[in-house]
């Protein structure tokens, strides 16, 4: 059942990204182009998404998921260098091409090489970040 829920959620997410125009790098870059002809599409997509997710997360209190014993939500609450550095680097890559992870994966559906190469490079970038995190964690553990 977990698998079915995930597949349906993925399908809905992919359809939503395509319908909303978020798989179009020009629209995304247009949103980030404050000093050009601003494209508000992404703002509407995000607002509509939040209009569903904000109440959805409120309803998790005093409930449990349909097919799981509990919710697995992130617990970290501290702002740290990793979060800030990661967000800066992600924003840089996002602004260079116009793909964030979701639209890049969804755009594989168009059968073009660009999305496939982007996703492969993205996986490589994640691998490098993971390596860095491990090295730093080890260094931190040995110094304390």
């Amino acid at each position: 059942m977990k698998n079915w829920v995930a597949l349906i959620s993925g399908l809905l997410f992919g359809v939503g990204l395509a319908v909303s125009g978020m798989t179009d790098t020009a629209k995304v870059l247009g949103f980030l182009d404050f000093f050009g002809e601003w494209d508000a599409t992404l703002a509407f997509v995000m607002a509509a998404g939040l209009a569903v997710t904000i109440p959805a997360y409120r309803l998790t209190k005093d409930h449990r998921p349909w097919f799981e014993t509990g919710f697995s939500l992130p617990k970290a609450s501290q702002l740290d260098v990793r979060l800030i550095g990661g967000a800066i680097i992600f924003g840089l890559g996002w602004g260079l091409y116009g793909y964030c992870p979701g639209p890049a994966v969804a755009a594989i559906a168009y059968g073009r090489l660009d999305a496939i190469v982007f996703v492969i490079m993205m996986a490589a970038g994640m691998y490098l970040a993971e390596k860095l995190i491990r090295v730093r964690d080890k260094a931190g553990a040995s110094s304390t």
Binding site: A6, S9, F13, G16, F44, A48, T53, A56, P65, S72
Partner: peptide, 28 residues
């Protein structure tokens, strides 16, 4: 803009489905 709103609502529903279904964050 109507496509953006419909698409955004679908994305929100996808995230709600993953959350209520299996208790997970839809972080791609």
């Amino acid at each position: 803009m109507i496509e953006a709103i419909i698409g955004g609502l679908l994305i929100g529903c996808a995230a709600a489905c993953l959350l209520w279904g299996i208790g997970r964050v839809a972080g791609i």
